[in-house]
């Protein structure tokens, strides 16, 4: 298994579950939570961090500024 390229943090309180990040990611890194949040949204969770290339498209396209992608220091 290759080493992790990036670390993704999702601010669950800000996420409205619009799914843009899940769809834009070509590697299928992100997925949906099974639980519904207090506000009635299904927030996004990180499913396959080992596949992340650190392209930050999810961070750039997140309308709720809820995703932070941090490159792992080598």
């Amino acid at each position: 298994m290759r080493s992790l390229v990036a670390h993704i943090e999702i601010n669950q309180a800000w996420c409205k579950g619009c799914q843009i990040c899940v769809e834009i990611c070509s590697r299928g890194v992100l997925g949906y939570a099974t639980d519904v949040s207090d506000k009635g949204f299904r927030p996004i969770i990180v499913e396959k961090i080992e596949d992340c290339t650190g392209c930050i498209m999810c961070e750039l396209m997140c309308p709720d500024l809820a995703i932070t992608v941090e490159k792992v220091e080598k």
Partner: peptide, 8 residues
Amino acid sequence: FPTPFCSG
């Protein structure tokens, strides 16, 4: 935050 915008 969160923003007042609709989801998406």
